[in-house]
Amino acid sequence: MLTYAIRRLLQLPIVLFVVSVVIVGLLQFLPPSSRAAAYVKSEQQLAHLDEIIKQYNLDAPFYVQYWTWLKNALHGNLGFSRVDKKPVLESIATRLPVSAELVLYAFLPTLLFSIWLGTLAAIHRDKFLDQLIRVMAVIFWSLPTFVLGIALVAVVYGYFKLFGIGRLPPELYIQLSQQEAAGQFHFYTGLLTLDGLLNGRLDVTLAALKHLVLPTITLVLVLGAQIVRVMRSSMLDELGKDYVRTARAKGLPEKVVYYKHARRNALIPVITLAGLMFAFMLNGVVITETIFNLPGLGQWAANAALQLDQPSILGFALFTAFIVALANIAVDLLYALVDPRIRYE
């Protein structure tokens, strides 16, 4: 098992290599003038298109561009992010905490909430409660995220004047920026709730929390709906198994059968799904980030893709591939643990 894990980890660079080749290859379908999209923003600059292409070396052949990039990448330099106006690694470093903070607060509630509902639905199979939960789950899942998000912004933030958008209230953000410049506040981790505590500033932590509420709710509703469905079917599976019948025959109370026995086993596929979902969330949830104005990885990636900013796209893709691949390995290992029929030679 351990050797399997190590071998998979050693294969990771190959996965990353494939990912980078595919992206760079794809971008080569573009003529140099289109590759200049990240550099030329206005009609005025169009007049100097040829100059720009030359200046940024956009007409170099595929292999030359790739080789230059690869050489730098191996030295830990992923290039300069045109859309973010700073080095790619710096972009990831400043944006990851934003996405990560959202995930940290959204993930656990999503999981708990949906496991609870999924179990409930399975126990009351085909009863009204089950139907209700299922229909609600599908509705939230199928509701375009931006409709839900904008509705939350309008109703909760705009009308009831609760919570906030962005990461901090404007005046607090200004204050922190000034104090940071004066060396009185330090962004140690980039996670505002944590940095607030580390600096002994409970107000920062609370304000940051307040600003996380709405995006968290959006994510819980949209992503939770998926887990509810998996949890329900997984739980139904378990309830149909022999050991549950045996447990019931032994005269164990229903509650014990449900919660102590069946649910424990039913959680396994859910947790593997959750692992992937965690990686997915960490890579930025573009729409939620846009609506609630959180400058996380998702927004960056979307901008980069729209403007065909090669270094940013590559940087993001590699980072994502890395995280997802790790999650994948974990999932595979979990499978093997659960189902002894599957062997990894």
């Binding site: 190959i14 996965v15 494939v18 990912v19 595919v22 992206i23 890579n283 573009v286 990636a301 979307a302 980069a304 893709a305 796209i313 993001f316 893709a317 994502t320 591939a321 890395f322 997802v324 691949a325 994948n328």
Partner: peptide, 11 residues
């Protein structure tokens, strides 16, 4: 795995 690990939306 490589394809699966791709950031789907970005691709």
């Amino acid at each position: 795995d490589a394809v699966y690990a791709f950031p789907g939306l970005v691709l």
